[in-house]
């Protein structure tokens, strides 16, 4: 294994570890429920993404095989992260968020989640 590949893969691994840790740390540090939603969707996704790229580079440059499985996992994570974030935000709005802080829509139509009666 050449030095350059080793440095590249090690850098990616360190980046992934740092971002994964920051994502979970943000979950504990931030105070507002909506703020906490930001940490995992971005920091943790980039952490796992860097780990997957490192794994793909490892099999490609060292074992000499091209594998697409890492790409599939990261594409799946990238597609599902916004969806689960949207659903979590919706359940926050439905249960805990102070609704007077939410601005009105541009048109007359109401927000989709605020149309329903609040549930206790």
């Amino acid at each position: 294994m050449s030095m350059v590949t080793e440095i590249l893969i090690s850098t990616l691994l360190v980046i992934s570890g740092v971002f994964g840790l920051i994502g979970s740390f943000g979950l504990l540090k931030l105070r507002d429920a909506m703020q906490r939603l930001h940490a995992p969707t971005k920091a943790t996704t980039i952490g796992v993404g860097a780990a997957l790229i490192a794994s793909a580079l490892n099999t490609w440059l060292i074992a000499g095989q091209v594998t697409w499985h890492e790409v599939m996992v990261s594409v799946f994570l990238f597609i599902t992260a916004p969806l689960s974030a949207l659903y979590l935000a919706k359940s926050h709005i439905a249960t805990t968020v102070d609704r007077s802080k939410i601005p009105p829509t541009a048109t007359k139509a109401p927000w989709a989640e605020l149309r329903r009666v609040p549930k206790g």
Partner: peptide, 15 residues
């Protein structure tokens, strides 16, 4: 590579 790998694994375990 081994050190970087151990670092990343400890980070995610702590996370």
């Amino acid at each position: 590579l081994d050190y970087a790998l151990s670092f990343a694994i400890s980070c995610f375990a702590l996370a």
